[in-house]
């Protein structure tokens, strides 16, 4: 029973990591209906920016987090301006391929010797990695921080999208771009802001996950990117609370599969979950049914 509770903690902790990355993913999709395949790579870049801030600029945790968020936000805006904006009216397949190319680009750019190089780097301990015990079950501070960050950022984002003027503009753009433009909403600006926020969230996740799992390499964003995408789809892509729930569900499933079924089949289970979700409820747990406009 103790083991089960420990595994529960492990699952929620892993799930909160996925949730953290998935909220940015889902937000971008929710507004511009585009799968930003490069999100996992922006997360990776965020991790390296955090490392740069800590080890080269000697920042402490919070300035480093901010540095990374600003950095990834700018990179996200740049990618949107250069690569995605010219394709806004292209078929989704073109955008999807471009996003894959951007993800390849970021990975291989960081891999060059001018930047991080292909070898793994370690992250200095800027946050306490101490553990405390709740009965026989043990939890580390960083696990709590990641979970809290995911929930708080998710709540803030939800508030931002639902209650602020910019958020309102975002939702209008999501509903109908042309009509939004006619209503005097600056569509380009709104989409850029969406990208900046989404990427900054990935940057924040990058720093936190870098501290939690201190092994940084150019390919570190690929697998989490895929799994968080699964999480976003599972929770209902475009729904911010859905991303958090989806992330936790995925983390929980993965951990429980490893703990009680087979550690070598865990990934197969995760991706099967994706396919099953799409078959049973393509809109995800919290998604709403949409109708295609003709």
């Amino acid at each position: 029973m103790v083991t089960f509770f420990q595994q529960l903690v492990n699952g929620i902790s892993l799930g909160s990591v996925y949730a953290l990355i998935a909220i940015g993913y889902t937000m971008v999709y929710g507004i511009i209906k585009m799968v930003n395949f490069a999100h996992g790579e922006i997360f990776m870049v965020g991790s390296f920016l955090g490392l740069f801030a800590v080890s080269v600029l000697h920042f402490t945790f919070f300035p480093a987090l901010l540095f990374s968020m600003i950095g990834t936000g700018l990179i996200g805006a740049l990618i949107e301006k250069v690569a995605y904006k010219p394709l806004r009216n292209s078929p989704p397949i073109t955008l999807f391929i471009t996003a894959i190319a951007i993800s390849m680009l970021l990975k291989n750019l960081v891999k060059t010797n001018f930047l991080a190089g292909p070898n793994p780097h370690s992250f200095p301990e800027v946050l306490s990695v101490d553990v405390f015990h709740i009965g026989p079950v043990q939890v580390s501070y960083i696990q709590i921080i990641v979970l809290l960050t995911a929930v708080i950022l998710g709540a803030l984002l939800q508030y931002f999208v639902k209650k602020t003027k910019t958020g309102y503009a975002m939702r209008v753009v999501a509903y109908d771009k042309d009509a939004a433009a006619l209503m005097g909403i600056n569509v380009n600006r709104t989409i850029t802001i969406t990208f900046i926020i989404g990427s900054a969230l990935a940057g924040a996740a990058g720093v936190l996950v870098g501290i939690m799992y201190p092994r940084l390499e150019p390919t570190m964003g690929t697998l989490p990117g895929l799994k968080c995408f699964v999480a976003a789809v599972l929770g209902g892509i475009g729904e911010i609370p859905g991303a958090i729930i989806g992330g936790i569900v995925i983390g929980f499933t993965e951990t429980m599969t490893k703990a009680y079924i087979s550690s070598s089949l865990a990934d197969a289970f995760t991706f099967s979950l994706l396919i099953i979700t799409l078959l049973v409820k393509p809109t995800g747990l919290l998604g709403k049914k949409t109708f295609e406009k003709v």
Binding site: V82, I100, L105
Partner: peptide
């Protein structure tokens, strides 16, 4: 090579 491929795809797509 991979860097060039990815830039090439982005440029082609645009």
């Amino acid at each position: 090579r991979m860097l060039i491929y990815s830039i090439m795809i982005v440029i082609l797509m645009i």
